[in-house]
Computed example of a mutant assay.
Amino acid sequence: MKQSTRLAFALAAALGATLPPAALAVEYNQVQAGKSSIAFGYKQMGVAMDGRFRKFTSQLSFDPAQPANAKAAIEVDLASVDTGGAESDGEVAGKEWFNTKAFPTARFESGTVKALGGNRYEVAGKLTIKGKTRDVVVPATFTPQGNTGTFDGSFTIRRGDFTVGEGAWSAFDIVANDVQIKFRIAASGK
């Protein structure tokens, strides 16, 4: 047992708290790609649309007893975009949108993690799309189940901040500026 885990148990006992042993004994660091997903939603001509990315990689290190030490990095293969149609997928991967030939991936890297209570966290980090990096704050919930756990969350970005949609698409009258990113990252640990 790690010293930090022993310390957490000792503090819990001293304060008379009941803490779930699994939550204190597991460091989640093995991402389960088949149970994880990254999706997005936006409005086109006022109609809600959605899509997802079929390929991404992620690294994670999260100990619920020490959330401030957590680290996460996610790299998305932008050419794996799935909008529900091959023609649309090709358009979105093209130069005016993601320009995947020049910018094949988007990347999120965590900086700080703040516990909000009730298995809720706020993850501040850097998001890079098309060579432009912006600070983002990502709210997430964590649901532990023994040696596995799931992070769920969503946050909104403005596509204009990353020049996603150039030329005629740079206006927001047809495709809205706000894009909601939704994610589920499943992980196991020991």
Rank of each mutant, 00 (worst) to 15 (best):
K101G: 14
W169P: 00
A68N: 12
T105W: 07
E96V: 02
V81F: 15
T83Y: 13
E109M: 07
A140T: 00
K55N: 13
V138W: 00
T163K: 03
G165S: 06
S170Q: 06
V164F: 10
G160K: 00
I174F: 15
K55R: 10
K101Q: 12
D63T: 02
S61R: 05
V113L: 09
T57D: 15
F142D: 03
G94P: 00
T128W: 15
S110A: 06
N99H: 11
G84F: 08
G118Q: 11
G94L: 05
M49A: 08
K132V: 07
E87Q: 14
S110H: 11
I74K: 01
D77K: 04
V136H: 06
T133L: 14
I129V: 09
E122L: 14
D152W: 10
G111D: 11
R134K: 08
P64L: 06
R107M: 11
G146L: 13
D152C: 08
E75Q: 07
A73Y: 01
T141S: 14
T143W: 11
T156R: 02
A68K: 12
T83N: 07
G165I: 00
D178T: 02
K130A: 10
T112D: 10
K126W: 14
G111K: 06
S110W: 06
P139N: 13
K55S: 14
Q59F: 15
A65E: 05
D135K: 05
V137S: 09
V179K: 02
K132L: 12
G111T: 05
T57E: 14
G111R: 03
R159T: 03
R159K: 04
D50W: 14
G51P: 14
R159P: 15
V175G: 00
P104A: 10
D77T: 04
S61Y: 12
P64W: 03
S170K: 01
P64Y: 09
R52M: 05
T163W: 04
V113R: 03
Q66P: 03
P144D: 02
